[in-house]
């Protein structure tokens, strides 16, 4: 069990507060800069503009250095850094439906990745951009967000189980 700076008793109260403050900061700056991951790729493909893409590339690089920095400072909180070296390199960080084989996770990364890129570019923005546009007063982006909220209940109730059953059915269980 990983331990962070705050003890568990304090952390369970700090979680909503810290994430709320983090979110306000990110939301404010995302509105100022028009931050969008999908938009970055799209602008580069269409116009060779690198401004938005630089935001996403910086995020990947900065997260590596951020995790590296805090791995030095608080090694107990970064139990599995660097993931590919401390765990099975083909297994993902927990968060996806559990109990599948590495091949299943590669399929479950590749297909959703392609489809999310396709759908989001047609709808004009990645999830964070839609959320920010909803706050700016766009009704259609607000409906995108409502769709995500309804989707999360449906996913937890039905889809999550089906994905595991489907993957086991084609022989990709753990």
């Amino acid at each position: 069990m990983a331990t962070g700076i705050l003890s568990k008793e304090v952390a369970i109260y700090a979680v909503p507060l810290v994430t709320l403050l983090l979110g306000i900061l990110i939301g404010y700056l995302a509105q100022r800069s028009g931050y969008c991951s999908i938009g970055g790729f799209r602008d580069y493909v269409l116009f060779r503009h690198t401004r938005l893409l630089s935001g996403y590339v910086t995020l990947i690089v900065a997260s590596f250095f951020g995790y590296l920095l805090f791995w030095f400072l608080t090694p107990a909180a970064m139990e599995h850094f660097f993931w590919a070296l401390t765990s099975n390199p083909l297994m993902p960080v927990p968060g996806a439906p559990a109990g599948l084989s590495p091949a299943a996770y590669l399929i479950l990364a590749a297909i959703p990745g392609f489809l999310i890129g396709l759908i989001c570019v047609l709808l004009g923005g990645c999830p964070i951009r839609q959320t920010v546009m909803a706050s700016e007063g766009s009704y259609k982006a607000a409906f995108f967000f409502i769709g995500m909220c309804v989707g999360s209940v449906i996913f937890a109730a039905f889809v999550s189980g089906w994905v595991v059953v489907l993957m086991r059915a084609i022989g990709l269980g753990a």
Binding site: P94, P97, L108, I111, I119, C120, G147, M148, G151, V159
Partner: peptide, 10 residues
């Protein structure tokens, strides 16, 4: 749909 896909990937 985007949420289903994102959750499948995690």
């Amino acid at each position: 749909v985007v949420l289903q896909l994102a959750m499948v990937f995690g």
